[in-house]
Design a protein around this nucleic acid. Structure first.
Lengths: 110, 110
DNA sequence: GTTATATGTTGCAAACATACGACATAATTT
DNA sequence: AAATTATGTCGTATGTTTGCAACATATAAC
């Protein structure tokens, strides 16, 4: 059914990135990681109004895409933003919006 | 099941916006609209490797969110980017990435 | 070595998204 | 008014995401 293969490689990449941001929990997680001056592991679960299991899954998706890293440290896991990947993601969105903003006035609404 | 209600209003709005960009067809549609100097209606379907029905649905989602407008003109419909909404969306993403980029170096990877 | 703590994994159900054929509508052309 | 063209809507099939409880693992504390 899903026919994403037929699309432009860049569009597909950006779509994947956008999907990561398409859930408020994942946005909240990213913001939380940016706000703490130390990388906190399970405390994320306390900040997010979802079960630990579900938060863990969201963390995994973010990690899978490379936006965050998770360093095991004894029993704990320290999650961090991957600044480079964040930068790349940011640039991708910028690239799209640059194109979208440069659309000329059209004949249909003069 | 879906518990998005418990989240920050801004995060929820941004998530909705991100969801729109989470499918390559919708990104392609937006880019196509930005690239044509006249707003074309069903020609979008020819540009997108999906059935007319499916493209119509994607157009509807984009219209529902206000990112594009669709002016009926006889038998045809002229779709256009809504520059103001695009600008707003762009600013929302910028706002998030601004926060994410300003994360200080953490103790966990010194 | 047992207990407590922190975390990850599995399996399942509900909700949501995607894709399309078939039908409906409505303006234009013939 | 019949045929054509452009578009939208409905129903339905299937795929994907979200959410959680229950179980598994593994370090640390006692």
């Amino acid at each position: 059914m899903r026919k994403t293969t037929n699309f432009d490689e860049n569009d597909r990449e950006l779509a994947k990135l956008a999907r990561l941001l398409s859930h408020p929990a994942r946005i909240a997680i990213l913001r939380f990681l940016a706000s703490t001056d130390c990388c906190i592991s399970g405390d994320i679960s306390n900040e997010i109004p979802l079960s630990r299991t579900t938060v863990s899954q969201h963390l995994n998706e973010l990690k899978g895409a490379g936006l965050i890293t998770g360093e095991i440290e004894g029993v704990r896991v320290n999650y961090c933003l991957d600044s480079q990947q964040i930068e790349k993601a940011s640039a991708s969105f910028d690239g799209l919006f640059e194109i979208l903003k440069n659309n000329k006035p059209k004949q249909c609404n003069p």
